[in-house]
């Protein structure tokens, strides 16, 4: 698909091709600012590499996008292979089209999926609805096995404005959850775990005052995040752009924590 024409940034809002492949869901969208013109979620973990480019092509056609203004991608954490697929596709497209690339935390994208519930656009459970007016700590989680999760923490009061409180990292859900629950209680905030709840439902259920929202990765909110980054000029160096794995490889750990760039 050749993108020609110069109708970018109609209505002053950038047209962004959004993609996240860090989880079992291949999530993609074409957004104009906060509005998703076309979006899809394919549930085929083993097929991300097969489907990713044809899915993007179909989305561009569906959205009638002649020329996009930027590409946004979830850079992880999540499945190493999955994240590489999204990042490889996104940086190559950005380079080939000569468009800015916005790298987003996949956990932040996942957390933003709670936005429509907090804003009352999607039906929410009583705990979430009852939190209106109070700060909500949204804790996006992805299962990382052995009782661990990839997680982060964001604070919002209206589901539209967000503030990051904790960096992306890999954590033991039990310990981390207890400390979060304690601090949320002191801060008067609702502690809301969002994402891959299933494997950790028991651990979360044992935390006083914690709520859970089962979410799969959705690119519908990515445009909102990407537009904000673009407006602030926060774009990536396309060639150097790489996933955020949050962890060294096993081989590096065994060798004593040397980075992939080598020590010598």
């Amino acid at each position: 698909m050749t993108l020609t024409g110069k109708e970018n940034a109609r209505d002053g809002e950038p047209l962004v091709l959004c993609l996240d492949t860090s989880t079992a869901v291949l999530a993609a969208s074409v957004c104009r600012g906060g509005e998703a013109l076309a979006a899809r979620q394919s549930h085929a973990e083993r097929n991300h590499a097969v489907r990713v480019v044809s899915d993007l092509k179909a989305l561009l056609l569906e959205a009638g996008a002649q020329e996009i203004d930027a590409i946004a991608v979830g850079r992880g954490p999540g499945s190493y292979t999955g994240v590489r697929i999204g990042v490889s596709a996104a940086k190559t497209l950005a380079w080939a089209w000569d468009k800015p690339l916005v790298g987003l935390s996949s956990l932040e994208v996942l957390a933003m999926g709670a936005g429509p519930y907090l804003r009352g656009e999607k039906p929410a459970s009583d705990d979430i609805a009852g939190a209106a007016g109070r700060p909500v700590w949204v804790v996006p989680i992805m299962d990382a096995r052995r009782g661990q999760v990839y997680g982060a923490r964001f604070e919002t009061t209206d589901g539209a404005d967000w503030r990051r409180l904790d960096d992306d990292g890999i954590r033991l859900v039990g310990e981390w959850g207890r400390s979060l629950a304690e601090r949320a209680g002191e801060a008067g905030a609702l502690l809301l775990f969002a994402g891959d709840i299933g494997p950790h439902a028991e651990a979360i259920g044992a935390l006083p005052g914690a709520a859970a929202l089962q979410l799969t990765m959705d690119a519908g909110e990515m445009g909102r995040l990407a537009a904000a980054r673009l407006a602030r000029g926060q774009v990536e160096d396309v060639h150097a752009f790489a996933p955020n794995y949050t962890q060294l490889t096993e081989a590096e750990v065994k060798l004593g924590g040397a980075g992939t760039e080598g020590q010598a």
């Binding site: 590499a49 990713v52 480019v53 697929i85 490889s88 596709a89 497209l93 080939a96």
Partner: peptide, 12 residues
């Protein structure tokens, strides 16, 4: 493979 497919799409 993913990069090559992205190039094929982008350059048509």
């Amino acid at each position: 493979v993913v990069a090559a497919k992205a190039l094929a799409l982008a350059l048509d």
